[in-house]
Amino acid sequence: MSDATLQRYHRQGRRNALLVAVLGLAALAALLLDLVTGPAGLPLADTLRALTGGEVARGTQVIVWDVRLPVACMALLVGAALALAGAEMQTVLENPLAEPFTLGVSSSAALGAAVAIVLGLTLPGLPAVWSVSGNAFLFALGALGLLQLLGRIRGGGPEVLILFGVALNFTAAALLSLLQFVASADALQQLVFWTMGSLASAQWPGVVLIGVVLAVAVPFSFRAAWKLTALRLGEDQAKSFGVDVAGLRRWTLLRVSLLAASAVSMVGVIGFVGLAGPHIARMLVGENHRVFLPASILTGALVMSLASTLSKTLVPGVLLPVGLVTSLIGLPIFFALILRGRRR
C-alpha cells in the first residue's frame, strides 16, 4: 500500500510541476497579448516580425521595442516580484494578509515619490528621470528597515511586525494626503497617477534593474523552500526540525524588501497582486514551497500582464492606471476563488 501511496504522491508532484509549466506558458501568452494590444493597432504578424528582428517599418520597430516591450516586460516582472514578496511574507510573518501593500511598503514608496514630486527633495547626484523612483525606493526600503528595527527592539514576533506594518501604512497614507493637500495642480496630476500605479513610464533600465533583483533573489528563495515549508507547521516545529527561524525570517525579509521596494519604485502602488498571486497559487498547488513559490511568481506575472492589457482595452482610447485595474478586476475574481475554495 505504501508504494502505491508514494506513487500517487509523486504523480501529484508531476501534476503540480505541469501546472507550474502551464502557468509559465500562460504568462508568456499574456505577454504576447499585452504586446499586440495598444492604440496603434499593430497586426500580430508585424509585432512578431519586429520581435524576431525581421523586416518591418521603422515606426513598428519603435513601437514594439521602445514603447510596448518595456511596458509589457515591466508588468510581468513587477507582478512576479510582488507575488514572490507576498508569498514569502505570508509564510515568515505567519499571516495570510501580509504583502507589501498591507505592510505599508507600497504607501511608503508613494510617499517617497510624492516628496520628490511635490517638495522637489531628491538625492544629490541622481539623474532627474530617476529621482522619483529613487526616492520611492529609498522610502520603501526605509519602511521595511524601520519595521524590522522596531520588531527587533520589541522582541519581534510576527504579530508585532504586522501591527507595525499596519501603523506604518496609515502614517504614510496620512503624510501622503498632507502632501497632496499642499501640492500644486500640476504635481497633483503626477502624484495621482503614481498612487494608483502606472506602467506608462516603464523603460528599459528599470526593467533590467528589477530583472536583476529577481534573478538574485529567486535562487535564494528556492533554496529556502523546505525551511519555509517547515515554518508553515509552526515556529516550534520548524526549530525542532533544525531550522534557524530567526535567521530565516531576517534573510527572507531582506530579500522581500529588495523585491518589494524595487517593484513599487518602478510602477507605484499596486494592490492585490502580492496578496492574490500567492493565494491563487496556494489553491492550485498547495503549500509545499518548492512548487508554491514558482507558482506564486508565475501567477503574479500572469495577473499583472493581463491587468496591463486590460488597462489599455477596458476603456477604448484611455490608458487606465494599472493599479486601479488590478484592484477593480482582481478583487471579484479573488473573492470568487476564495468562496469556491471554501465550498470544496
Binding site: 501511496t5 523546505w226 515549508t229 517547515a230 508553515r232 516545529q237 526540525f241 503549500e287 509545499n288
Partner: peptide, 12 residues
C-alpha cells in the same frame, strides 16, 4: 495548513 500529511513529515 494545506500541506498534505506526507509532505509535512518530509519537511521534518
Amino acid at each position: 495548513s494545506s500541506l498534505v500529511a506526507l509532505e509535512s513529515v518530509i519537511a521534518a
